[in-house]
Measured scan of single mutants.
Amino acid sequence: TGEEYIAVGDFTAQQVGDLTFKKGEILLVIEKKPDGWWIAKDAKGNEGLVPRTYLEPYS
Rank of each mutant, 00 (worst) to 15 (best):
W37T: 15
W38A: 02
Y5H: 06
N46W: 06
E31Q: 12
V16M: 08
S59A: 12
E3H: 10
P57K: 09
D18Y: 11
N46S: 10
F11D: 01
K33R: 10
E56L: 12
G24K: 03
T53A: 09
I26S: 03
I30P: 01
K41Y: 07
K32H: 06
E56G: 06
K22W: 08
G17E: 06
D10W: 05
Q15G: 15
I39S: 06
K41Q: 06
I26D: 01
G17W: 08
D35N: 14
V8L: 10
K32V: 07
N46M: 09
Q14W: 08
I39E: 03
T1H: 14
D35A: 06
K32S: 04
P57F: 15
Y5Q: 02
V29W: 01
S59F: 13
D42N: 09
G48I: 02
A7G: 04
I26P: 03
G48N: 01
K33L: 10
I39N: 09
G48L: 02
K22G: 08
E25Y: 05
G17T: 13
A13K: 06
D35S: 11
L55A: 01
R52W: 14
K41G: 03
E4R: 07
A40E: 00
L19P: 02
Q14N: 11
V50A: 09
E31V: 12
T1G: 15
V50N: 00
L28W: 11
S59D: 11
L19T: 01
E47G: 07
R52I: 11
L19R: 01
E47Y: 10
L55S: 00
A7M: 03
P57W: 07
K41L: 11
K23W: 06
Q14Y: 06
V50E: 00
I30L: 13
G36W: 04
L49G: 08
A43G: 11
I6N: 02
K22H: 11
T53W: 15
A7H: 00
E47R: 10
Q14K: 10
V16T: 15
E25K: 02
A7L: 02
I26V: 13
E47S: 08
E25H: 10
G2C: 05
Y58D: 04
T12F: 13
P34R: 08
A13E: 05
W38N: 01
V50Q: 00
E47L: 15
E25A: 12
A13I: 03
D10I: 02
S59L: 12
P57Y: 11
R52V: 12
D42H: 03
I26F: 06
G45V: 01
G36N: 07
I6S: 03
D18I: 15
P51R: 08
G45Q: 06
E56K: 13
V16P: 15
K41R: 13
D18W: 15
T1Y: 13
A40R: 00
A40S: 03
G9V: 14
E4S: 13
Y58F: 08
G45H: 06
L49P: 04
G17V: 04
F21R: 00
Y5L: 02
K41M: 10
V16Y: 08
V50K: 00
Q14T: 08
K33W: 08
V8N: 14
G9A: 14
W37A: 06
P57L: 15
P57Q: 11
L19A: 01
G9R: 13
K23T: 10
E4F: 12
I30Q: 06
I6H: 04
G48A: 02
I26K: 07
A43S: 15
Y54D: 05
V29T: 02
L19H: 02
A40W: 01
V50R: 00
G48T: 01
E4H: 11
E31H: 11
K33F: 15
F21W: 02
L28T: 14
Y5P: 00
G24R: 03
Q14D: 09
L28H: 11
K33C: 05
E25M: 08
G48R: 01
V8S: 08
Y5I: 01
Q15V: 09
D35G: 11
K33A: 08
W37H: 08
V8T: 11
Y5E: 00
V8P: 01
R52H: 10
D10G: 07
T12I: 12
G2K: 11
T1F: 15
E3D: 13
V50W: 00
V29F: 02
A13V: 03
I30R: 06
K44W: 11
L55W: 01
K32Y: 07
W38L: 03
Q15A: 10
P57T: 07
V50C: 03
G24N: 07
Q14I: 12
T12M: 11
W38Y: 07
E31C: 06
Q14A: 09
G17Y: 07
P34I: 08
A43C: 04
E31D: 13
T12Y: 11
F21D: 00
G9M: 14
K22F: 13
R52T: 11
L19N: 01
G17M: 06
G36T: 04
D18L: 15
V29G: 01
T53N: 14
E3R: 11
E31A: 11
I39L: 15
L55R: 00
V8W: 05
G24E: 03
E4N: 12
